[in-house]
Design a protein around this nucleic acid. Structure first.
Lengths: 213, 213, 213, 213
DNA sequence: TATGAATGAGAATTCATTCAT
DNA sequence: CATGAATGAATTCTCATTCAT
């Protein structure tokens, strides 16, 4: 309190505040996170966040812009560089997303948006337009690639995109909800593999399965 | 003072309050719903809900017990009475669930539990134990039925259940979140059909597809 | 609720309500006693007390008038009929008061008046004028009787009255306060005897003591 | 918004709040004192007391700890330093107590504890254990000193303590109750003198009295 | 008379935000 | 820039009282 050992680079402050805020939003939700807690977690006092941000909502938005949105580039990079068939690309993409988001604090974002989205339409809009839609575009690209090569047969591409992304989204939600949690805890590896297997091969037993494996 | 008081709906009151509450929880979330709003929406004044329920949380729980949980019987009835192959049973079950929940206000429950579950572990527990788990059991039953008849090939049944239920859950969430909403609005029929097609047949083009259709 | 076995004499209602109220005031205090509780304890429903009394405060006043004040006659009767020396009369009077009030629910009255008196000056005034003052007059009468006979030597009669009544009052308060309660519980017999001994003989050791006992 | 905010009394605030609270508790009782009143009386707004205290009950407890309990040391100091006979010590002690409590706002404490003790057993316990019991110990000490020197003859020491303290307690109660108040107001000097005279010499006229005066 | 559902003013408490220092 | 004490609007919940039946 009285002694700050080393004078902080002031330019780091906003980033520190955003990281503190993300951690708290993740663990307690937006409404239950007090500004004072964010300040404390960032090592400053209650008034300081207001120097950099207009209020709690703006911090939420900034967290999204500064921390979440940059993750999309990982998907684009994978898409641009991937060599191989489309099934493997889809697998790789889902795994990449899980690693980038599911295994980090960012997995809380779907929950946050679902919980608070309707209270903050402005933020929901940004999330939708700058994260969900681009993400869906990547998926669409993969599906079209697979269809073009004759590898995939996609019944209804707009909706298939939603179906394909659902399991990953649900897995992220489960990490932050107490609920839905199978026996006890989700094993991501098994979950991802099962997801990919089902999405590629379906439930129906058939010659294809034998052929494929 | 200046009132009509007592239009003698009496024993209907609790139900009216629960319905009003559900409507508000659905549209604004639990935290953002004020007790006064519930009262007003039910056509009473602020004190009345407290005659029947101890507080907001208890209203939430009652909504779940009185309105959500009874829906499970629909699934059980379908399961008991269905004659036909397992793929058709799965289709029928997903359609039934969508009709019972997805097309009613109950579709808000997944959202509510995700948003508020960690604040009300007691309620989350009931939801999990009395709704999710029984629902999963029904799905497991269908999968086992299909496996026994040689119709299904299920990679990892515990996780497959989660994967299969994910699209429906996500569809419900989308109805109440502003986000994720493809172009504009979800067409449930197309969504369901796509879901079922993908889950049964997978994405991969193959002889099976031709065979099946 | 639905069946009242025997139709109550309606004239008994107000009295029943007052007795129920006294019991609750005694055990929970005035503020913490809800009108609904009084009604329930009297075997009627929440609206009924209002047929007979204007409100909670009026019930309090009525309890005092109907139940407490009549006790004073016991003191007057003792005073009128007592034959013997004044020390014995004082002893008898203190014991009588203790029996009439200390050992009944009425012992709660001093506590109630102390706790609530300043919120209900009207009631405090009645208590003062119609109970305390007459009680003090009785004591004064006894002291004057003792002084006239040469039995008592009273330093300052107005204040002596207060001193003499204090231990009984405190004993009543202790019964209703959790506090002050010596080792564990007060033995009224020992307390009264000690009070009387001290008030008559004082603490100082002296020839008088030997002479007296 | 339109404020002076912050006249920087800072570390004085808690004390100011306690003093404001004591004043209000004294004049209106605990239940009738609203947090807003305390705040206003302390010159702050409604939220400020909650910065320093968890709620009304904690303020009550703090008032007792910070303002009442320290008074006991006065009694201990007198006991330790007094030279003279035990009757004079008893007189001195009663006068000291009256000055320390009876003539200050602290005289309201017996009333507060009687009125609210049963609603706050925790606080009543502290009052009993840290104030009443130590106070009684001091009295016991004086009585034992007088008995050892042959000056006092005490019939039943446990109960005598209660009898001896009763008049002072009642006097404090009278200051805060509207009731019991002789003609009009109590003259403490006369009350104390009468108390001491009666407790030492008793009512009975006898040779001792002549001898003593 | 009696009922008891409903009223609604009132009190405690919380916390995002401000601004004197 | 940073502080952190103070603000005060907002919200939950209580209960004495009313009055349609």
């Amino acid at each position: 309190m009285l002694c700050k050992r080393w004078t902080r680079r002031k330019e780091a402050r906003p980033q520190e505040i955003l990281e503190a805020a993300l951690g708290l939003f993740v663990s307690k939700g937006f409404a239950a996170t007090k500004m004072t807690d964010i300040a404390k977690a960032a090592g400053v006092t209650s008034g300081t966040p207001y120097i950099y941000f207009a209020g709690k909502e703006e911090i939420f938005e900034a967290v999204m812009r500064e921390i979440l949105l940059p993750q999309l580039t990982i998907g684009h990079e994978l898409l641009a560089s991937f060599q191989g068939n489309s099934a493997d690309l889809l697998k790789a993409m889902l795994k990449t997303w899980w690693q980038a988001m599911g295994e980090s604090q960012l997995s809380a974002f779907p929950k946050l948006m679902i919980a608070e989205g309707s209270n903050f339409p402005q933020i929901a809009k940004i999330y939708q337009e700058e994260f969900v839609t681009p993400g869906n575009k990547i998926l669409r690209h993969i599906l079209e690639r697979g269809m073009a090569s004759g590898e995939f047969k996609v019944p209804d591409i707009d909706y298939a995109i939603e179906v394909i992304s659902s399991p990953i989204i649900v897995a992220m939600l489960m990490k932050h909800s107490l609920i839905n949690c199978l026996p006890d805890t989700l094993e991501p590896e098994r979950f991802l593999n099962t997801t990919i297997d089902l999405l590629l091969n379906g439930l129906l037993a058939s010659p294809k399965d034998q052929a494929h494996e």
